[in-house]
Design a protein around this nucleic acid. Structure first.
Lengths: 316, 316
DNA sequence: GGATATATGCTTAACTTGAGCATATTGAAT
DNA sequence: ATTCAATATGCTCAAGTTAAGCATATATCC
């Protein structure tokens, strides 16, 4: 193999654009997942990618640290999309990220603006059963939307999609479908963002706090990603203090997943994965016997790819 | 909830950048996964994001269709990164995509430049057992690299990482770790890209065809994504002709995964998922009894989230 | 002192997964 | 024609994984 130094034939005339970095920064306090916001809790933090940023991710990091005074732990890219700038005809490329930070670092202050993420998605918290806003308000309206379709096959299609996304008709509710649910509500004009700019006539009261532009959609993407990720990578620990009890860990997972887990099985799962070790201390924060405290085991193995094999691979 | 129209406080001075779209386009022919290339098979197709592109994805689509004359089926975003332009000090943002296209549309022609992806990653094809290039060349060199570390703990660490990534010492080989393996080989200067620009003194012959810039790294990302994805989303069908036998489907999956699957269990898996239905025809392409032909069932359900629950969720 | 919530160990049934046996069917080789 | 090799396809079985629940001891709250 000889070394290759030629350039690709792609450097014709370039159309300048500008790039924004948008952050979905998550922390969990008091059993509530929270997201870092600005602008009266109506926007996600975002800022331009600048010349002196070494990379996109480091730009995001320095910049979130400036705003919050706290370092971001885990950061991963979410999605990149292009909009026409609202002011000029110029293009803006938005690169969104998911960031996780520690509970202790998430003090609530007016400057930072941490908000419970279920303020924006009240239909996503199933920890205490099906949320009333879903059962009493959204499901009827979604049914109405499905049935208002002319074409019978389209009607059937909508009904199926609604039932699948929201876990109706005896189906399981799948907590990962955050984005699909938001998009379906958008399609049915059951979120405020969907009626913006047109027909300001009937401002119905709609559940969930809206955000500017497509920020709530980006937040939905971040939540969905996190709910998926906690199942195969030990990212929850990024949200935990250095030492914690298994119940605290469980409550954090439940807060993120929006549903309850089976306690004994959860402990078995955690312990058999060798992800934690006892600190030796115990604490009695609540009733009941004192709980052991654990810490996250930072092993080389911790990059364990729990490679969920869904293919019948042969071992031979 | 009132409607929000305020802008975020983020539109200060903008630093213009330019944006490139890079495509990893995959097809499978003759049991070999192939990737669309340009520049004597040393570059991935890529082109600038232009003003008249409606969105990033549609820009990519129109543009790949221009080059190949064929529509892209499935497209998903891979990753976005920023480089300093090699010519000026300006920034280039590269947005990479994974695209899948049908076998029948992947005629090989000099213009298109389809190349087997194992030309670039000969250590990734384990269908016929551990590839000789891995066993005879890379493993010894990787061991040497691990042992050349001064610090004993670093030595140990490297040995562990090598064993984990390449499935040595009785460990399972995980086909999803394509990117980790490429990066490890890069770190050990066992791929040509790692020695570029410096020390042209000893041009060792290294396995795998190199590409310009970081295109081989992007290809590795695409392969890894696809190997992960086929396990929980029915994306293989994007690569299949309208009708196919289960063996053809299996061979395609094996080509992508780089390893063999258990035939009977594969059939059980496919059929129990209700993803396919018989066309009614049979074909005898090879020896043995004629095989039934199937087609992909395009159901609403097909967006099945095979949501691999790795949390002990309660059903109650 | 009793109610209540907790920490933690253990069991069981259902389901999933990996592996292999068995049999029938065909094209190619002899 | 007969044999061989590769195939399509049905079936079984053992091992592993998961969901659920039982049980018991230990705290706090009143």
């Amino acid at each position: 193999m000889t070394q290759v130094t030629r350039q690709p034939a792609r450097t014709n005339q370039r159309h300048p654009v500008s790039a924004d970095l948008i952050a979905v920064v998550i922390a969990v306090t008091d059993g509530q997942p929270r997201v870092l916001t600005i602008e009266q809790a109506q926007a996600l933090p975002s800022g331009p990618f600048e010349l002196d940023h070494r990379s996109l991710q480091s730009g995001l990091r320095t910049w979130v640290e400036q705003q919050t005074g706290h370092p971001l732990g885990y950061v991963e890219q979410l999605y990149t999309f292009a909009d026409r700038d609202r002011t000029g005809g110029e293009r803006v490329i938005s690169i969104s990220y998911l960031g996780l930070t520690r509970e202790e670092q998430a003090e609530r202050s007016p400057a930072h603006g941490w908000r419970g993420w279920y303020d924006y998605f009240p239909w996503e918290d199933h920890r205490a059963g099906v949320p009333s806003v879903l059962r009493d308000i959204l499901v009827p309206r979604l049914s109405a939307w499905a049935n208002e379709a002319e074409d019978p096959s389209m009607r059937h299609d909508r009904q199926q999609r609604v039932a699948h996304a929201f876990g109706l008709d005896g189906r399981d509710w799948n907590e990962e479908l955050v984005l699909q649910r938001y998009e379906m509500l958008y399609e049915a004009t059951l979120v405020a963002e969907a009626t913006r700019g047109r027909d300001a006539g009937s401002p119905r009261s709609l559940p969930g706090r809206p955000m500017i532009a497509d920020h709530r959609r980006i937040l939905a993407t971040g939540i969905a990603r996190l709910r998926t990720k906690i199942k195969y990578r030990p990212v929850v620990f990024e949200l935990m203090p250095p030492a914690f009890t298994l119940l605290q860990l469980q409550r954090t997972v439940e807060a993120l997943a929006g549903r309850l887990v089976h306690k004994q099985n959860f402990r078995r799962l955690i312990e058999q994965q060798d992800l934690v070790e006892e600190t030796g201390e115990t604490v009695s924060e609540t009733r009941g016997p004192p709980a052991k405290r654990f810490r996250f085991r930072q092993t080389v193995q911790a990059e364990r790819t729990v490679a969920g094999t869904k293919l019948p691979l042969s071992r031979a």
